[in-house]
Amino acid sequence: MASSPASYRPSSDMMAITVIVAVLAAVPVVASLVGDPFLVKIATRVVVFAIAAVALNLVLGFGGLVSLMHAGLFGIGGYVVAILAFHADDSSRLFDLFPGTTELSIGLPLAMLVAGAAAAVMGLVSLRTSGVYFIMITLAFNQMLYYFFVALQQYGGEDGLQIMSDLTLFGHAAIGRMSFYYGCLVALALVLVVVQRLINSRFGMVLRASSQNERRLTAIGIAPLRYRLTAFALSGAIAGLAGALLAAGQQFISPAEMSWVRSGDLVVMCVLGGMARVWGPVLGAAVFLVLEIVLSGWSTHWQLAFGLLIILVVVSLRGGLIDLLHLVGRRGASR
């Protein structure tokens, strides 16, 4: 690792977060200057997946837990919003009990709650194991969620679920392209700040320590399980928020968003951006998604290049883009 953790300065991280959010906030301005509204659409996607990747990195980068079920949790969030809208649309009731709603001030927190609860329940089983077991179990749980939604015929099954009615936030239309983008950006900013505080709090110290030396942690009197579980549930809730935003933004959610390959993609975003910082995965998500668009425009066989790129990152860019930035910064400074 090029950056030693003792030089960890929370203030410089807050600075980085500010810069990132500012740059993202400028995207719509640039888009209107160059007259390409497609840019805002891409940026929305980047912001949404950045939220999911930051969520994953809380447990992956700081807790050392290689979870391959985050696409599943992400999808749960999306389905909560979509199913609520579905019931609002035909005035039916969910479980014959609850009315639906198109109001995001209810839908988003509920999406977080359900995804967080699912993460907690599945975490309870998977966190009792470690290493390869943990990875394989989370992968299996991801598939379980995937097949569950594939089998839910009343909500579209494999074809996915369209959101027919207009979603609102506190009664105002929420899905205008600009306002929705800035809404997502605010969510990302909040998530970044919260996770940044979290990993430097007492809780965060325990989480980080648990990934470095579990035996030592136990020997000083802290059993890591409940801290890991809490982190996992929080991470799941935030991933659920991201999924809910995706569903709201594209007015659609399908099991395809929860495939295990998506879970792998999220891990790649974290590693590509750099897991040592809270904001690293934002860079990873941006580069990943932009690259996906660029490469797929180039060739139908873009996945080949993509796969090779992933291997290259694992082999040679261990600290992710953050390390590259450091390297460039240092070279610039020494000039």
């Binding site: 007492r202 809780f203 110290m205 942690l217 000083i220 802290i222 801290y227």
Partner: peptide
């Protein structure tokens, strides 16, 4: 100091404190 602070933290009760900077 963070290494040792964790040992102090363990003795001071649970670590479900999410906001304040531990360092």
């Amino acid at each position: 100091v963070q290494n040792v602070a964790l040992a102090v933290q363990a003795r001071l009760g649970h670590s479900f404190r999410f906001w304040r900077d531990a360092s």
